[in-house]
Amino acid sequence: MIKIENFRKNYGDIQAVRGMCFHVEKGELFGLIGPDGAGKTTLMRAICTLLVPDDGVIEVDGLNVREHVTEIRNLIGYMPQRFSLYQDLTVDENMQFFADIFEVPQDEREQRKKELYRFSHLEAFTKRKAGALSGGMKQKLALSCALIHTPKLLVLDEPTFGVDPVSRQEFWEILHEIQKGGTTILVSTAYMDEADQCDRIGLCFNGEIVGLDTPQKLKNDFKYMIYEIRNENLYRLRDFFARHPEIRTTQLFGDALHVSFLENPTESNWRQYEDEFGDTFTKRSQISPDIEDIFLDLMENHNG
């Protein structure tokens, strides 16, 4: 559905995207995971024909974004990062407006609205102004407007940003429903825990894709042992482990330290660590890596 080959984009001297390559298959729910400034928005805008690539090729449904601007705009539904609906228009007026612009035929329109209301549960609020909706409801309305013309491809730029956890979960359930209807979805997020909701993910960092696969595969391929270690003095603990050559990464996660070892340490190794550290570790347990561990590992070991 989307083909990205060697996509580059610079803003002045800053290389926002430096050579991204990946494909998104038809019907897939693909997640772009990465922190702010990783180039996710730039990539999505290029896919939506909002900006022209400096180098490389991007094709949407076989159409090159440089040449087939209008055709591509007709077949995608785009939800930009910032909440972008008319706050002074009602829920229904917003949906009507986008239906009008995309020239959705009247007879299809009612059917489509009914379907979208079923996902979004916004029927009860059709007469309410968009500005008076809660954050989660606004997001669902924006999604409904992006879907009103039944696009083949849905592009969502950080749709769950600033939305409460319950609404986020609900939002992802809606996305799965939409996916079942055959729509390809490209979604970006800075929340690593949302990676597991996607069929495949691309880990974005510093304008590059540093990891690309299904979340499960990425986890399985992670060959280092991760331990969760707790001690009152976390920072000293981190510095202590960071000094050891057999340790790949150390990351603080709340009140615990995640340490990945190149080789699984033995009981005697642990005793040795405690002796050297001069204190016992209150907890130590092998944990299976989540996407955040993998991402931080890739980030740290990517360039150096």
């Binding site: 909002l50 007709n74 995608i76 910032r82 972008s84 609906l85 986008f98 612009i101």
Partner: peptide, 13 residues
């Protein structure tokens, strides 16, 4: 300013 233009841009308008 409110960001609706970006959404309008990605329409056949």
């Amino acid at each position: 300013e409110i960001g609706t233009l970006e959404q309008l841009m990605v329409t056949p308008l």
